[in-house]
Design a protein around this nucleic acid. Structure first.
Length: 195
DNA sequence: AAAGAGTCCAACCGCGACCAG
DNA sequence: CCTGGTCGCGGTTGGACTCTT
C-alpha cells in the first residue's frame, strides 16, 4: 500500500512558515487543491503531499473560521457526535468554516472531559434508567446503521436511498444556520425518546 | 522566580478506500 | 483481477504555552 502518509518521513511537527504558506497557496491557486505530491514538488517545499493537503485544509483554505467555538456550535458538536460518533469530517461538514482537526481537538481537550464528568454523575442513577439508556442507544444504533454503511469513506452508495450527508446536510443552508440545526436536533431527540 | 505538571492545538502517521492503467 | 498512485480519515504526538506549587 503506497500512501502519501506512509511515505512521508517524520517531520517532527515542523511549523509552517509564512513563506511556505505563500508558496503553497500560489501553487494551489494555479493547479487546484489536488495531486498533493505534485503540488508539494511544484511549490519546492521540503514537505510531503499529505502535509501540504493538511496545511491547506486546516489553515489556508478560504472561509476557514478561526477562534473560539460558540455555545451553539458546541451544542451542535455534542449532538452530532452522539449520532455519528468520531466521524469528525462529517461533523465538520455540518459546521461551516470549521475543520475536522479543529473539532477533533476541541472534543479531545474540552468535550470529552465534560462528558466524563456527566457520566460520573449518571452512575448514581437507577438501574431502570440504565436499561432505558441501553434501549435508547440500541435505537440510535439501528437508526444510524444506514449512515455507517452508506458513508464508509467517500461517496454515499448511489444505490442507497440516502446517506448521512443527505440526511443531515445543512451545507446547502445559509452559512451557519445553527438555529435551524438546533431545531432539527430537538426534533430528532424527541423522536428517539418517543420510539 | 523557578520548575514541574497540565493543557491545547498544529502537524504527522498509518491505514483503508478509490481509481486509473 | 492486480498494482501502484492518490486521497481522506481518525488517532497520535511534539512542543509551546499556561497554571500551580
Amino acid at each position: 500500500m503506497a500512501s502519501v502518509g506512509s511515505k512521508c518521513r517524520r517531520e517532527t511537527n515542523r511549523i509552517w512558515t509564512v513563506e511556505e504558506d505563500q508558496k503553497l497557496a500560489e501553487v494551489v491557486r494555479i493547479h487546484g487543491p489536488r495531486r498533493w505530491r505534485m503540488v508539494a514538488a511544484k511549490a519546492g517545499l521540503n514537505r510531503c503531499g499529505n502535509s501540504c493537503r493538511l496545511r491547506w485544509m486546516n489553515y489556508l483554505r478560504p472561509n476557514i473560521k478561526r477562534g473560539n467555538i460558540s455555545d451553539q456550535e458546541e451544542d451542535l458538536i455534542l449532538r452530532l457526535h452522539k449520532l455519528l460518533g468520531n466521524r469528525w469530517s462529517l461533523i465538520a461538514g455540518r459546521l461551516p468554516g470549521r475543520t475536522d482537526n479543529e473539532i477533533k481537538n476541541y472534543w479531545n481537550s474540552h468535550l470529552s472531559k465534560k462528558i466524563k464528568q456527566n457520566e460520573k454523575q449518571k452512575i448514581c442513577s437507577t438501574s431502570k434508567k440504565n436499561d432505558l439508556e441501553k434501549e435508547k442507544a440500541h435505537e440510535i444504533k439501528i437508526a444510524t446503521k444506514g449512515i455507517d454503511e452508506g458513508t464508509s469513506r467517500r461517496e454515499v452508495d448511489p444505490q442507497c436511498s440516502f446517506g448521512s450527508d443527505q440526511l443531515y446536510d445543512f451545507s446547502v443552508e445559509e452559512p451557519l444556520n445553527l438555529e435551524r440545526m438546533s431545531k432539527f436536533f430537538e426534533w430528532d431527540e424527541t423522536w428517539f425518546e418517543f420510539t
